[in-house]
């Protein structure tokens, strides 16, 4: 077990963030904070604005209002590659792997521009042994589950202090989805700070200690995971409880 971390302010704090596409906002006035070592989930249905929120945090689109602070500094509007180099890693639902490069080369690029750390690579292979078996295979030839592992593994290569994951179970069969979450739980237990956006609400609430519900681009309910899991509204909308 790790010693409890002395928190000197949140590692990520988002305030008043609004963003969208072609002049029309999709998310409105989003505010939340994440402390070091925490696992937080953002739950919402398809099109609720989860991906837009992450894209705005990563400067993949320009927010129309609000600020994003990471590790004490304002990163609003900073170029995406600079944000990535600061230690804020993002695994999009579409994964954005390099299909004609081997598993190993994809992992090496995760460490760009630094020299890849063999110890980190070993720990990635430790969490995802399947990747070690497929080292020389092109990323484009991997199965969906393996591609997801590679996307997370590539993000880990940069030794991130915060990992944003957008629907890590997209396109995965239920058994593989549960397996993916087992790996994420392991990373969480190793002390990695996680923010997971998810439609698979039971898995996400089990992983995270607390969560936010996003609906039509706005944050609504929030609270500890058990509380959200017990909330009748959440049960009706996301947990399939009648």
């Amino acid at each position: 077990m790790r010693e409890p971390v002395v928190v000197s302010g949140a590692i990520l704090s988002v305030a008043g963030l609004s963003a969208g596409y072609v002049g029309e906002d999709v998310i409105y006035d989003i505010g939340f904070e994440v402390d070091e070592g925490e696992a937080v989930t953002i739950i919402g249905s398809n099109g609720a604005g989860k991906s837009t929120l992450f894209r705005a945090i990563m400067s993949m689109l320009t927010p129309s209002a609000g600020t994003v602070r990471f590790d004490g500094s304002d990163i609003t509007g900073l170029a995406t590659h600079r944000i990535a180099r600061l230690g804020l890693a993002y695994v999009p639902a579409e994964r954005h792997l390099f299909p004609q490069m081997s598993v190993t080369e994809n992992l090496l690029l995760g460490a760009f521009p630094d020299r890849p750390d063999p110890a980190i690579q070993d720990s990635v292979f430790d969490v995802f042994p399947r990747l070690a078996e497929r080292k020389t295979q092109d990323a484009g030839t991997l199965s969906g589950g393996e591609q997801q592992m590679l996307a997370v593994g590539r993000a880990l290569m940069s030794k991130p202090s915060l990992l944003l994951l957008d629907e890590p179970t997209t396109g995965l069969a239920p058994l593989l989805a549960a397996e993916a979450y087992k790996a994420l739980a392991r990373l969480r237990d190793d002390g990695l700070t996680l923010v997971v956006a998810e439609q698979q609400v039971p898995l996400a609430l089990e992983l995270a200690s607390r969560g936010y519900v996003i609906d039509h681009g706005r944050f609504g309910l929030s609270g500890p995971s058990e509380e959200l899991a017990g909330n009748p509204e959440v049960q009706r909308a996301y947990l399939g409880v009648a």
Partner: peptide, 24 residues
């Protein structure tokens, strides 16, 4: 080389490259 792989990463997936810290 790291820069060489960086060039290939931009050719294959520019957004993926950005997320890895490569400046296109």
């Amino acid at each position: 080389t790291s820069l060489g792989r960086g060039v290939r990463s931009v050719i294959q997936d520019e957004m993926g490259a950005r997320l890895c810290g490569v400046n296109p």
